[in-house]
Design a binder for these strands. Structure first.
Lengths: 106, 106
DNA sequence: TTCTTATTTGGCAATATAGCCAAACGTTCG
DNA sequence: CGAACGTTTGGCTATATTGCCAAATAAGAA
């Protein structure tokens, strides 16, 4: 595999990896409805604030969310709406797993 | 977070995690062009056969690919075409990372 | 059967990830 | 200033992932 191509797959994998966690997936979903502060997300998720903050950093580093400090709070929002498409496709994967027929989702 | 909802995010994350690796991403891409044997993929990737085989197992367990044994070989193929959509979206993430403007990819 | 080819499995070492606690910042308010 | 709130960072442990080698398994050819 050509190293240029290789680098391209690595870049893509990095983005996917950022989403490949239940908590971060929830965040993407929630942020698609509007901006949320770290504390708001923390309350919904029920983990330690520091854990939530670190998950948000992962999403930010991947370019999926952006943050804006307003007063003492930091509000995060989803930068890339198309991330929601993932849910549709992933659902079709899960659907084709249950039954053994392949619904050929498109 | 409700445990039922929680389980749903975990299931989705599992699928994403399966794709979140450069080699496996390459495989998905390559298999979308048609079925390939383990050895064919191994030659393209340049890693140990056992490594390639394990990556394929990951994709299979996630329900993304299917395998069919024919003679001494095992041919893998992409079960879920929509997995390719990911590329389009991920590219838009990467694009919005380079420039700092957000192209609002849809 | 024996040799060869194709694939998977077991096992190990290196590395990465996740989550918590504690501590450090930064901002606002009294 | 000092206390309170919101957030991030450092550090640690537990767990998971990756990739190689070696060995096991399966099918086909000689």
């Amino acid at each position: 595999m050509d190293s240029h191509i290789q680098a391209q797959y690595e870049a893509r994998a990095k983005v996917l990896k950022a989403m490949a966690h239940p908590t971060r997936l929830f965040m993407v979903d929630e942020l698609s409805k509007g901006e949320r502060s770290v504390l708001e997300l923390t309350r919904m998720i029920g983990a330690d604030v520091s854990t939530v903050s670190k998950h948000l950093t992962v999403l930010k580093n991947a370019g999926l969310v952006s943050d804006e400090k307003r007063g003492p709070q930091v509000f995060y929002s989803l930068k890339v709406p198309c991330a929601l498409q993932f849910f549709t496709c992933v659902e079709s994967v899960l659907a084709s797993e249950d039954g053994r027929a392949l619904p050929m989702a498109r």
